[in-house]
Amino acid sequence: MNFKAKKFEEFLKKNNIECFQRETIKDELKTTVFRSVMEVEGQNLPTVIVTDISIYTIVRVQIAAKLLKDIDSEKLLTYLNKLNSEYKLFKYYVTETGDLCLDSCIVSTEDNFDVEIIYTSIDVILKHLIEHYPILMKHIWSIKK
């Protein structure tokens, strides 16, 4: 397990946070993924924290799966670009498979890796989604083909 993953796991244990499952990936970056969900509007949104030996830690939330099949993608991307211009901590994007995701990339070295920043980022994202998820989904439903 990489240093950031160890530190994150220690934080979870110390704070009695039991909603994450750890998965160690056997790759050159010594990646460890912590999986959970964010419950928003009765939906369980898959959430991962990706740690490795690079300077990046990713917080990723899957907002909707296979979205582009029935959506006017140009209108959706225009709307997402508007949202992305309003928020600094995270960005919305659509994957190759049509999933709508939200990513936050936190940069740090081992020396200055701060688990509190990661957990605060998760909290900010959750508060944002609680407030904006219904608006986002209403907009998405309005641009269905």
Rank of each mutant, 00 (worst) to 15 (best):
S121Y: 03
Y92C: 04
I135C: 02
S108A: 15
N84S: 05
E96I: 09
K69I: 06
K82N: 08
L102G: 04
L102S: 06
D111V: 01
D103C: 06
D114A: 10
E131F: 06
D114W: 00
V107P: 01
Y92E: 03
K91R: 15
F90P: 02
I135F: 07
L68I: 15
I130W: 02
H139D: 10
S121F: 02
Y87E: 10
S121V: 12
K69W: 12
L136W: 05
M137F: 04
S85C: 02
Y79M: 03
K88A: 14
P134E: 08
K138Y: 08
N112R: 08
N84F: 06
S142K: 14
N81K: 08
E116V: 09
Y87K: 04
C101Q: 14
L126A: 06
D99N: 15
E110Y: 11
K127A: 10
F90G: 01
Y133R: 05
D72S: 12
I117W: 04
E116P: 02
I140C: 11
D99F: 07
C101V: 15
T95Q: 11
L89H: 03
S73Y: 09
I71M: 05
L89V: 07
I118F: 02
N84E: 05
H139I: 00
Y87P: 00
L77G: 00
D99R: 05
I71K: 09
T95L: 11
Y92P: 05
I130N: 12
S73D: 11
H128Y: 14
T120M: 09
T109K: 12
Y87F: 14
K69Q: 14
I125W: 02
K91Y: 01
I117E: 12
M137P: 07
F90I: 00
I106Q: 13
K82V: 01
C105H: 11
L100G: 11
E110N: 15
T109F: 11
K127Q: 12
C105W: 13
L76T: 07
L102C: 07
N84L: 08
I122Q: 09
M137Y: 03
E116C: 04
S85M: 05
V94A: 09
C101F: 07
I118R: 02
V124P: 00
I135V: 13
V115K: 08
H139C: 05
L83A: 01
K69G: 15
N81M: 10
K88G: 11
D103I: 07
S142A: 12
D111P: 00
L89K: 09
S121L: 01
I135P: 00
C105M: 15
T78Y: 02
V107L: 14
D114F: 05
L100M: 15
T97H: 09
T95N: 08
D99K: 03
H132G: 01
K69N: 14
Y92W: 06
I71V: 15
K91P: 00
L68T: 15
K127Y: 04
L68P: 00
Y93W: 10
K69M: 13
Y133V: 04
L77M: 14
I135H: 10
P134F: 02
K82S: 08
S142G: 04
D72H: 12
N84Y: 05
D70P: 03
E131P: 00
D103Y: 10
G98C: 11
K88Q: 14
S104D: 08
E131S: 10
S73G: 06
N84V: 03
P134Y: 04
Y79V: 00
N81V: 01
H128V: 01
D70L: 09
C105Q: 14
L76V: 07
K138G: 05
D123G: 00
E116M: 03
D72N: 15
Y93A: 09
I122V: 10
